[in-house]
Simulated assay, not measured.
Amino acid sequence: MDHSPSPALNVRGLSVTFGTRQGPVPAVVDVDLDVAPGELVALLGESGSGKSVTARAVMGLSTGNASVTAEQIRLGDTDLLALPESEHRKLRGARMSLVFQDALSALNPVLSIGDQIGELFRTHRGMSRRQARAEAVNLLGQVGIPAPTRRVNDYPHQFSGGMRQRILIAMAIALRPELIIADEPTTALDVTVQAQILELLDSLRRELNMAVLLITHDLGVVSEVADRILVMYAGRIVESGTADDLLSRPGHPYTQALLRSVPQADTRGQELYAIPGSPPSPANQPSGCPFHPRCTWAVDECKTTRPLLTLLAGGRAAACHRTEEVLDAAVTG
């Protein structure tokens, strides 16, 4: 499954379980993922599928009641599992960054943007206040903030939602990290601004050769920018492959259903398709394939036996008892 001799991010067998009063609740189960330098990988799935929990576990930001286990989590040549928290903290921002979906709550309302960006350079690079401010101005220009020399003195509430998101991206790329994890970075933005933010991430990862893991529930968001897609359902990866393969010929009924849910110009005026039901609670998963209660392809085997993630031709993988039939239907349909 390796797509590069030395992935920027290499995760094997990642599981996250939350301790609750009702007992342990598995939120992420046995996830493998790689992101190569300069590659944009999308982690796709509905809310509650385990995407953000995966991101926080990789960053070392899991909450206190979370138990994180993995065979391997490596950032370049660094074994993150072997690092003490103090060393892990030094890597965050410097070699790996997280872009949150809610810029207003992620930014400090009482500090100017220049101070917030500058703090990264003062803390990690030992720069003077003047040097850090100059770097902040350069970064704001790089992410498309107009009149950066003037706006560097402004506060978060003086920027629009799209501009605040650009500022978060500026902070994420400030120290030229190897890896950026963008967690639903366009959720609260209108469609035009969404496209601009994605184009910005896409151009920056090419320009700086950064690995980007883009977490989203929106297939429409990833179709333009992703090199590969990992589809997540009920805490597990259920399909993976190149964006071209998955979008043109899905091999899992869940991916197929997500694609059907994307509004198309030629279906204007028709009722939009919605996947029936809702994702299962991590604390109460169905037997067999967790998707079977919502799946139009389900047979008796699906209700009793959970399908394993199986490698297919062309380096893609799917966890479905009827993958070949789903793939054939995508061709004939």
Rank of each mutant, 00 (worst) to 15 (best):
H3M: 09
S4C: 13
P5M: 01
L9K: 13
R12C: 15
V16P: 07
V16Y: 06
T17N: 11
F18P: 08
F18Q: 00
R21Y: 10
Q22K: 09
V25Q: 07
V25R: 07
V25D: 10
A36K: 12
P37G: 07
E39D: 00
E39C: 00
G45K: 13
G45Q: 15
G48I: 15
S49L: 03
S49T: 09
K51Y: 09
V53W: 08
T54S: 15
A57H: 02
M59C: 05
M59L: 06
L61G: 04
A66D: 07
V68H: 05
T69S: 05
T69L: 02
I73Q: 05
A94L: 14
S97P: 08
Q116I: 07
L120Q: 05
L120C: 03
L120Y: 02
R125H: 11
S128M: 13
A132E: 14
A136W: 09
A136P: 10
L140E: 11
V143Y: 10
P148S: 15
T149V: 13
R150C: 03
N153D: 10
D154C: 00
Y155K: 01
P156K: 09
P156F: 14
P156L: 12
G161L: 06
G162F: 11
R166A: 06
I169F: 14
I169C: 09
I169H: 13
A172H: 04
E178W: 03
E178R: 04
L179R: 11
L179A: 11
E184R: 08
P185Y: 14
T186Y: 07
T187M: 00
A188Y: 10
L189Q: 07
L189K: 09
D190M: 10
D190K: 09
T192P: 06
Q196G: 07
L204E: 07
R205T: 10
R206N: 00
R206F: 02
E207D: 15
M210N: 08
A211F: 12
T216M: 08
D218L: 11
D218K: 09
D218S: 14
L219A: 08
L219R: 05
E224Q: 07
R228K: 14
Y233N: 10
A234R: 14
E239C: 12
T242M: 09
A243V: 01
D244C: 01
D244P: 04
L247E: 05
S248I: 04
R249S: 03
P250E: 01
G251W: 01
R260I: 03
S261Y: 09
P263E: 08
Q264M: 15
G269C: 14
I275R: 06
P276E: 11
P276G: 11
G277V: 03
S278K: 06
P280L: 00
N284L: 12
P286D: 05
A298C: 03
V299P: 00
C302K: 03
C302N: 01
L308C: 13
G315T: 00
A317P: 10
C320T: 03
C320P: 02
R322V: 06
T323C: 12
V326C: 05
V326L: 08
L327R: 00
A330H: 02
A330V: 12
T332E: 01
T332H: 08
